[in-house]
Design a protein around this nucleic acid. Sequence first.
DNA 1: TTAAAAATTGACGCATCGTCATTTTTGTGG
DNA 2: CCACAAAAATGACGATGCGTCAATTTTTAA
Lengths: 205, 205
Amino acid sequence: MSETAEIEPLGKRERTKVANRQAILVAARRVFAQMGYEAASVRDIIRGTDLASGTFYNYFRSKEEVFGAIADDSAARFKPLLRAARERATSFEEYLRGAFEAYFGFIADENELEGRPIDERRPHVRSDTPEMIAVYDEVRDGLEAAIARGMAPRIDADYLACACIGIAQEVGTAMLRRSPPDIKAAARFAVGFILKGLDGAPRKG
Amino acid sequence: MSETAEIEPLGKRERTKVANRQAILVAARRVFAQMGYEAASVRDIIRGTDLASGTFYNYFRSKEEVFGAIADDSAARFKPLLRAARERATSFEEYLRGAFEAYFGFIADENELEGRPIDERRPHVRSDTPEMIAVYDEVRDGLEAAIARGMAPRIDADYLACACIGIAQEVGTAMLRRSPPDIKAAARFAVGFILKGLDGAPRKG
DNA sequence: TTAAAAATTGACGCATCGTCATTTTTGTGG
DNA sequence: CCACAAAAATGACGATGCGTCAATTTTTAA
């Protein structure tokens, strides 16, 4: 194998290319958080770097594409956490708990930047970018695997995955609105709810 | 009481005001569906009516506000359906089934306009309009009432409402992607899942 | 009939859009 | 070290959309 990890043979050209792309993404994250996604313009983003306006278009075609790249990046960083939760788990319940704690912890970290309210900067997490589709697939695969092993009943894995993602999103957002956000408690609620429905969710108080 | 329902004493001024506002909303729905929310401009919307560009700003401040009005309108039309489901039901399960069938039927109707994929018709941020908050409150009230009557366990009503809404949204979107969308089946899935968790969801096939 | 009030209109100044010819930077061979 | 080609950055440009506003038309009320 001559494909060993390409340690660091990056010329200056490649390095600045990576650096510029990253600078744009960092500026975009900040701008989206500060003024909200809708209000932000490509010019606002590029002003947050030391690049010229035309340079933006060497890296992205539009604001939407930048948003997609950020979402893709988040999804790519989250996916291994999800995978790890699956591999670490020895039971379905453990898998679910690991996955939800990973997700709730992740969004708690991601939203620590000060600025506009959460709702105005938050991606509408649909099966959008390749990495986000990969996350959805990871969720569904994990559930299908559990079903195949008899750890979960044989139900519609697509709807099930959607239900879990919906719960994760909405309960996650609700958690962020509470201060301080209690990650374990939120995960406990979600896991109990998914496993047993109303009867399984932790009693209040 | 001299405040009796104001039957129809609308002058021409009031009538055209209502008509123009409605014309803008109708055009906006069509434009959002056809070219996608992001790509649409205020000019695109106003071109879909016989009004001048400046007139738009007598009714709305921005494209976002138009979307908010559409969302608000949808929520306002949906809320009574939800309320009716609650009043009609004689058990918690019946309430849930009625609510989900109402919601899934509603979004199936709402998205019958041909055009861009569902996901592109909305902004990438979540807007919480007054009527949408009212719908959320209706959901939570319904659940709290059930809890108070001992028809459901005493769990965190806020998280529960969020979980139900998340399920409704994600499973609803997934349902729309299938053709033809099977409203009853989707509702059966959601209700079973909420009541009993994995064990309660209908088996596949 | 007429004057005040309200609403509509479209042109205006300004900002952002995406492009592209030009300039600057980087990699390569003599 | 220099020169030359490829690659990338730059900012000015025409086009388009933005939100405003003085002028105009329509409606209401006296």
